[in-house]
Design a protein around this nucleic acid. Structure first.
Lengths: 162, 162
DNA sequence: CGGAAATAGTTGATGGTTAAATCACCTTGG
DNA sequence: CCAAGGTGATTTAACCATCAACTATTTCCG
């Protein structure tokens, strides 16, 4: 089976994506850290918790919603708990379960950071390009997430010959 | 100054991008590690070196081309050298400089991994969406890289009021 | 020439991430 | 009811990334 290489345009698009994403995520992370003492992953967690009913979410739900491993969520929440941004409580209905809960301090941190973060996202991405292109990015990564989201990994690779 | 929040479409596009990118990069990394014992960052380095004249690049050039810190490149190249994928030599024209050089083993590793990697990229992104949308992604992140690439960070944030 | 300042790269400590093993609880079949 | 297996979450150790400090070389400029 001969490899279907990327054509020059695809190649260019792919590399731009990798490089741009590296720079973008690093920049957003730095802005949040420098100005509001939260990392980007922590910020994502604050957002999910703030949107959840009762401001609380099971650890596994949280992990799924931000696409992090269980273990990573455990460590990250442990750090955030030390900082007072969240607290933990046993789940009533399932003795194994743990609810992560956004504290007032965590909520305040999020409220303080959000405007700054949105401006970063605008300045570094949204306001930089045509609205249609933003929509296209949305379509593309929704498709990617849909393809990869439902943990059904092929053993090796799907050669997917056209 | 009142915050210009993202409108619902932008919000959706942005979250799809974050989630999709998280899943995509993790998947590509996993495929490379499992099948060819290289991480995605290491693979990027192999590619850059293979394309460079004489298959060698100064450490700083390498760092810039993959948008990694100098220190990270030092550590990563050290690991790759231990594995025999690259070697290092003093630069003739500048006594401070060091050239990273792709070995035959490194070249072979890349040749072995490339088809698999390209298939991953196709299966998880390129072949999943319309060609126009891939082009749009390319435009968007080229603009992002252009904006962020030239290390001229604003001190806090550019409010960039429209 | 001589010394200050800039540049290339490395190092070591520190903290975050991962994989594998573990603990606790729940569920199901006998 | 109880044992076996499954699931939720945490822990451990190894690994990788980051930051600040450091060495060595070069450049600038008096």
């Amino acid at each position: 089976m001969t490899t279907r290489w990327l054509d020059p345009d695809q190649q260019l698009a792919w590399r731009a994506y990798i490089v741009g994403t590296t720079l973008l995520l690093e920049r957003l992370d730095r802005d949040l850290r420098d100005n509001h003492q939260v990392s980007l992953p922590e910020y994502e967690i604050l957002v999910r918790l703030s949107e959840a009913p009762e401001r609380r979410l099971r650890m596994a739900e949280l992990a799924d919603s931000v696409k992090n491993s269980r273990s990573r969520i455990t460590h990250t929440i442990a750090r955030m708990e030390r900082e007072g941004l969240v607290d933990r409580a046993q789940c009533d209905s399932d003795g194994r379960g743990v609810n992560a809960h956004l504290t007032d301090a965590g909520s305040q941190r999020l409220v303080a950071a959000a405007p700054c973060h949105v401006e970063s996202v605008r300045a570094c991405l949204i306001d930089l390009v045509a609205a249609d292109d933003v929509a296209a990015v949305g379509r593309v990564f929704a498709a990617v997430a849909d393809e990869l989201g439902t943990g059904d990994r092929d053993p090796i690779l799907s050669p997917a010959s056209a």
